[in-house]
Design a protein around this nucleic acid. Structure first.
Lengths: 199, 199, 199, 199
DNA sequence: TATGAATGAGGCTTCATTCAT
DNA sequence: AATGAATGAAGCCTCATTCAT
């Protein structure tokens, strides 16, 4: 049987959560192990007890996020079952960003943006998370199609890609501009388009 | 007679170009001043003769890029005058990315993604570059509208925002995935939408 | 049981003692962290494990000195209880200086001389040390007065200030001249004056 | 015939005056050649045209000061001819220091405090300046003695040393404390003593 | 005289990581 | 399972000085 780690490792969890927040705020490269440990009130050697190295921490952070995503523990609606849900899905990102004064982008995209050739483990982690999200969208459009509520010509997966791209681009641009209007304009156009595909 | 300074500073130029390439490849934080100097074959203190500090270099890199952009010295078509041009504009990014094995994203977006609160100078630089690009798109849609070739309800600026967001999102996602299909799918949908707005 | 930390940090102590000696010899600004580490045989990063930065080291050095001063661990007699003690107190400085070929001044005054606006922590440290020394003198003169052995008109604190000033000036001038005769002449006059105040 | 340099070398003079001010404010070691040049609006190479190196600049600064001192171009009264003059001489230092918020000590003493073994040229320069000052005092006390206004037992040179020491000590302590009361108290005592030697 | 560009050593500090206990 | 101490490479930046013109 698998050990239930989380309950017995509060230090590990705290480190992961702190790291996630700092990575989100300032990226991986700008975040030192020391800063993570200081903010998570953990000792220097706890880190290397729980994680092989910094990259392993990034991996763990992503896996932790992925676990929360799958278990629906995040304030992201990945059960998209109606147009209303899709709208909510989009505007939820805007809302989260505004709640942070448009200071941050997508936590995963931020990490992904720093990827360089060779970081294949982390790349795979992010792809996994991205795919999960795209699948949520995909399922929605597939469902519409099955129900005959979408034009025959459209490919549900392609629509999911489109939504995902607008979301990522919007979050990045809003973070840079510290203003979400471009993001919101883009969402509005994307939704207008998608709805135009309804039958 | 006025001295033309830039032409007489090959070292400065070389540093900027090398830095631009390295920032594009691996981000600002992962690029050390030493690496830039080594790759640009410049002496250690040349750097601080020409630039106040690393941030000033980033600023200079962005201003250099902005200058090239304005002078049409980049392989980016910012004279968008037809739907064909718009398509080319979009697919140009795909092509550039593919030429680098989808190893990199937008050079400017990559720098922007690393921004943290307080880096206002660099933020302004990037906003300037982004605005210039959005203006190119905006002008095109404005032109269409003036000519009566666009539905009355649409706002040209909003369409520009939309295109820009798709471009940024697509570049980021393609870089992370090391594959451009999601980007291409998104472009395809974006173009389909935009053309649907034509009268 | 409470752990006694300082005893377990030989590296930290060694660094402080080495730094004190180098600061005394050549001042703070002329002493590099590297030199301190080399001479104290400590690894490069030991330093920043124990001290926040160079200024923190200066602070620690001064606090260490202050601790020694308070605990009477220095070859400075701060129990001045007789005119003989006062004489010894003065000539002790001459003796110490001569033992170093008049190569150095007051270790604390030397640090103080390099102070610039804004270095308030270190300034306070030095003021603390100076005050402690002036208090030793003050107590002596107060005692005399209480015993009726001092003219009524004199203020014991002012006499302490006077002694302290002569000491600081003498140490500085002797260091610069690499010769203590001016210092000794001044001590002689100071003592003559002070004794003339006795009843 | 000797060339009159000063009139023809405004840059050199400006550098020296700027350097003097910066050395006074923050010491020699904390003052970089670059800072001097920036503040004196001189080009990099003017410096090495006029001065062999930084040490030569310090030497030149001291010689410049010495020249001013000898020519009575400084707000320091070195014509001490009465007890009133002596008082003025002392309190003049207090006044100058207060005018700078007790931020600085003796410009020469500050440089002297940074001296290390081997800097013999500069040491000699400072000794020269100090001697000149002590001579001013000496002459006054000698004069008194000749006139029979001083007790027979006193040595005028020793009294000069005493005054000088109090002045140097006072300036240093006042700079460190950013307050001149200890200095003033010491002057008061010194004057009381000296006057007590009058016949 | 005067200039901007170049040099390279060395400054302070932070990094990710490992060791001994 | 956890600790503080240690490591050394590397980070950014400043220094005094010299060169070519």
């Amino acid at each position: 049987m698998v050990k239930v780690k989380k309950e017995n490792q509060p230090a590990r969890l705290k480190i992961i959560q702190t790291a996630f927040d700092l990575f989100h705020k300032q990226g991986v490269n700008a975040t030192s192990v020391d800063e993570i440990l200081e903010k998570s009130q953990a000792g220097k050697s706890q880190f290397y007890y729980y994680f092989k190295n910094k990259e392993d921490l990034v991996h763990s952070v992503l896996m932790f996020f992925y676990g929360q995503l799958k278990n629906n523990e995040l304030p992201i609606n990945n059960k998209i079952e109606s147009w209303k849900d899709l709208e909510r899905w989009f505007y939820n990102f805007v809302g989260m960003q505004k709640a942070m004064n448009c200071d941050r982008g997508c936590p995963i995209g931020t990490i992904g943006s720093e990827l360089v050739t060779g970081q294949d483990l982390i790349r795979q982690d992010i792809k996994l998370i991205f795919e999960f999200t795209r699948n949520s969208l995909s399922r929605f459009f597939h469902g519409l199609k099955v129900k005959g509520e979408l034009k025959d010509s459209v490919d549900p997966d392609v629509l999911a890609d489109f939504c995902f791209t607008v979301m990522q681009g919007g979050l990045l641009v809003a973070k840079i501009n510290r203003e979400s209007d471009i993001f919101e304009n883009s969402i509005q156009q994307a939704l207008a388009y998608l709805k135009s595909l309804a039958k």
